[in-house]
Nucleic acid binder design. Structure first.
Lengths: 151, 151
DNA sequence: TACAAATAGATGTAGGTACATGAAATATAC
DNA sequence: GTATATTTCATGTACCTACATCTATTTGTA
C-alpha cells in the first residue's frame, strides 16, 4: 500500500520528508503485525526479541547489558522485560561468578520451545509479505544505513 | 551507521530479514531523536503529529476520527492525545453542529505558535541528517511501499 | 588500605500504547 | 415508528517505555 493511502495524505514537503514518515509507518505496520501474532503465545515483541538474542548467544546465557546492546529499540528496561519472561519461566536469572554486579540470563527449555513455535508462526508470513526480492532488499539496506538522526 | 554495528549483530538470515530489523531500527532512531528534541517544548512525538495534522486541515478543525486516520501509528488513543493537548491549551474541543457524536478539534493560537517554533527546531536537522538525496529517497519510498505485513 | 569514581542492574514515576468496554447519537431494518 | 445495529468518542485496564535515581559491587588512585 502506498503511503499516501495509508495515512490519507497527498502531498509531502519533499521525498526526504516523505521517507521519514514512510519508515515510521512501515515500522509500525511490521511491529503491530508481529505483536498480533505473538499475542497467541502470551509474549510481546520485545520479549520475543530478548528470547531470540539469548538463543543466539554462547550457551544461551548473557549479561543484562549485553542483551540491551543488541536490542533494536535500545531501552533501559531490559531488567523489566526479563522480569516478565522470568514470571513465565521462559528465562532464569543467575548471578555471575566473575562479577557480583552482573546478572546472567539464560533460556529455560520452556523458553526455547516457545521461541521455536512462535518463530515458525511469524517468520514465513512476515518475510514473504514483503514482496521484495533479495536485490531490492540489499539496495534498501544500504540506503537505510545512511539514516542516522541520533545526535 | 551500519545496522550490524548498531545492534551488534553480524549475520542475518537473509537480506529480507535484515531489512525488517533495519526498518525497525531506523524508525526507533528517528522517533527517539524527535522525541528528545520535542521534550524542550513539552510535547511528545504523537502530540506533535496531531498538531501538524490539524494545521493542514480546513480551518484548522477536524473530527477525532479523521485525525486518527491520518496518524502514522494508528492507535485508538486519539482522544487521550487530545486530552493532553487540551490540558496545555494547544487545542480546543467543540461539539459538531451536524452530528452530536462527533467532536471537532481545532488549534488554538498557542498551538499554532508552538507548532511553528518546534517545527523550526526539528525539521532541518532531521532531514539533513539523512544524507540521502532526492533520487535515493524516491527509490526508498517506492520500495518501502511494497512492505505490507498487515493482514 | 581508604576513598572517590565508575559500572551493573534494579526500581520509582510519569507518560504512552493496545485492546476491550461503555454511553450517547445516529442510521437501518422491519 | 419502534427496535436493532452502527458509529463516534470516551474511559478502564494492563502493559510498555523513557528517564532519573538508588544500591551494591568493582575499579582506580594515592
Amino acid at each position: 500500500m502506498k503511503l499516501e493511502l495509508a495515512i490519507k495524505t497527498r502531498k509531502f514537503e519533499s521525498e526526504q520528508h516523505k521517507l521519514v514518515l514512510n519508515i515510521l509507518y512501515r515500522a509500525w505496520a511490521v511491529k503491530s503485525y508481529v505483536n498480533r501474532k505473538l499475542k497467541h503465545y502470551g509474549i510481546s515483541h520485545e520479549q520475543y526479541n530478548v528470547l531470540r538474542i539469548l538463543k543466539g548467544s554462547f550457551h544461551n546465557a548473557m549479561r543484562v547489558k549485553d542483551i540491551g546492546s543488541r536490542l533494536i529499540e535500545r531501552s533501559s528496561n531490559v531488567p523489566r522485560i526479563i522480569d516478565k519472561l522470568e514470571d513465565k519461566k521462559l528465562v532464569k536469572r543467575f548471578s555471575s561468578p566473575n562479577d557480583n554486579r552482573e546478572t546472567l540470563i539464560h533460556l529455560t527449555s520452556a523458553g526455547i520451545k516457545l521461541l521455536e513455535v512462535s518463530t515458525r508462526s511469524i517468520q514465513p508470513s512476515t518475510i514473504q509479505s514483503l514482496t521484495i526480492n533479495e536485490k531490492e532488499a540489499t539496495i534498501l539496506n544500504r540506503l537505510l544505513d545512511k539514516i542516522n538522526p541520533n545526535n
